[in-house]
C-alpha cells in the first residue's frame, strides 16, 4: 500500500474543505477531497447542476481550492472540453481538467455530449459520482437507480423494475484509455486509480460509488460501511478497463450476501425475500461475467509506477 497517496497535499489542508453544505455523511464530498488530493492544485473542475454544484458553496463563495466551472445540466462534457481547449491554446497542457458529474448528468441528461467527447478522446478526467438517483432535486429515479429501489418517482408499490444502466460498458465501447470503478471504502485503491488516470492522457472515465444518506434512507454514520458492503457483496465490484478491452478486477471480494447490503438502506425496505434472492442471482451473474472478462485477459495488477 502506498501510504504517500494517503497524505493530504498541503494545498487541501491549508484551504480546508470546511463549510460546504453537503448533508452529513455525504459520500460525494469524501470522494472529491481525495480525488483533489491526488490531482493537486493544477486542476480545473467543471460540474453540471447537481449536488456537487449546489453544495460547493453559495455565490460568491466556493469550498473547492481550485477553479470550479458551473455548467448547465446536460453540458458538463461540452464545458469541460471547452476548458481543455482554452487551456491548451494558452499553453497550459499540464493543467488537469476534471469533469465532476452525478449519475443524472452522466447516465441520462449529458450522455450525448459525454459520448461525443469520449469518442474524440478529449484529454479530460471525467468522474461520475454515482449516488443512483437525482438526489439534489429530491430523489427522483435515474437510469443509474438499481432495480427494486424506492425513489420519489418510483414509490412503494411501483418500485423501479428496470435494471441499472451499464454505463461502464458504454464508455468502454468508446475504446477510451481508461475506465475504472472505485469506492470511498477502499481509499488506497481509489487514490491509485486517480493517480493512474492522471498519468494517462486522453479520455479517462471513473465511476465512484457515492453513498447518499438522505436519498438512500441510510444512517449517515453507515456511509463507509455500506460502501464496503457494496463491494464485498459484488453489487459494486472494483475493476478497470484499459483501452476498452483489457478488463481487470481490482479486488477479490468476500462475497457477502447482497441482503446484508440492501438491509442497510431504507430505499430497499420494500423488497421481499424473493426480490432479494433475485437481486442475489443477478449480482452473481454479473460478477461471474466480470470475472470471466478479467480471466479472459489475464489478471493485471494496478501498479503505481515511479514518476
Amino acid at each position: 500500500m502506498d501510504r504517500e497517496l494517503l497524505n493530504d497535499n498541503d494545498f487541501l489542508r491549508d484551504s480546508g474543505f470546511c463549510g460546504h453544505t453537503a448533508c452529513p455523511g455525504c459520500g460525494e464530498k469524501i470522494l472529491l477531497r481525495h480525488v483533489l488530493d491526488v490531482l493537486g492544485p493544477e486542476t480545473v473542475i467543471a460540474a453540471p447542476a447537481g449536488c456537487a454544484a449546489v453544495t460547493d458553496g453559495i455565490f460568491p463563495h466556493t469550498v473547492s481550492p481550485v477553479p470550479f466551472l458551473h455548467t448547465a445540466f446536460g453540458a458538463v462534457a461540452s464545458g469541460a472540453a471547452g476548458v481543455r481547449a482554452g487551456l491548451d491554446m494558452s499553453g497550459r497542457e499540464n493543467v488537469t481538467v476534471l469533469a465532476w458529474a452525478g449519475d443524472g448528468a452522466t447516465f441520462d441528461i449529458g450522455l450525448g455530449p459525454l459520448s461525443a467527447i469520449a469518442e474524440r478522446n478529449e484529454n479530460i478526467i471525467y468522474v461520475c459520482y454515482d449516488n443512483e438517483a437525482y438526489m439534489n432535486t429530491g430523489v427522483q429515479r435515474s437510469s443509474a437507480t438499481p432495480s427494486g429501489s424506492w425513489t420519489t418517482t418510483t414509490p412503494s408499490g411501483r418500485l423501479k423494475s428496470e435494471p441499472k444502466k451499464n454505463i461502464d460498458l458504454i464508455m468502454a465501447s468508446h475504446k477510451i484509455p481508461y475506465v475504472a470503478t472505485a469506492s470511498p471504502a477502499f481509499l488506497d485503491d481509489l487514490k491509485m486509480k486517480v493517480a493512474k488516470a492522471k498519468r494517462l492522457t486522453g479520455f479517462r472515465f471513473l465511476r465512484l460509488f457515492s453513498p447518499c444518506p438522505p436519498g438512500w434512507k441510510s444512517d449517515p454514520a453507515d456511509s463507509i460501511t455500506l460502501a464496503r458492503l457494496a463491494v464485498e457483496s459484488n453489487i459494486f465490484p472494483l475493476f478497470e478497463i484499459e483501452d476498452g478491452e483489457r478488463w481487470s478486477l481490482s479486488y477479490e471480494s468476500s462475497g457477502v450476501p447482497v441482503a446484508r447490503y440492501l438491509k442497510t438502506q431504507g430505499r430497499f425496505r420494500y423488497l421481499s425475500d424473493d426480490d432479494m434472492a433475485r437481486i442475489q442471482r443477478e449480482t452473481d451473474r454479473d460478477y461471474n461475467r466480470l470475472k470471466s472478462l478479467h480471466q479472459y485477459n489475464g489478471y493485471q495488477k494496478i501498479v503505481v509506477e515511479e514518476q
Binding site: 484551504s15 470546511c18 463549510g19 460546504h20 453544505t21 458553496g57 460568491p60 470550479f68
Partner: peptide, 12 residues
C-alpha cells in the same frame, strides 16, 4: 461570475 472566497464562514 467568479467566486473568490471560501466557505469558512459557514460554521456547519
Amino acid at each position: 461570475a467568479v467566486s473568490e472566497s471560501s466557505m469558512d464562514w459557514n460554521k456547519t
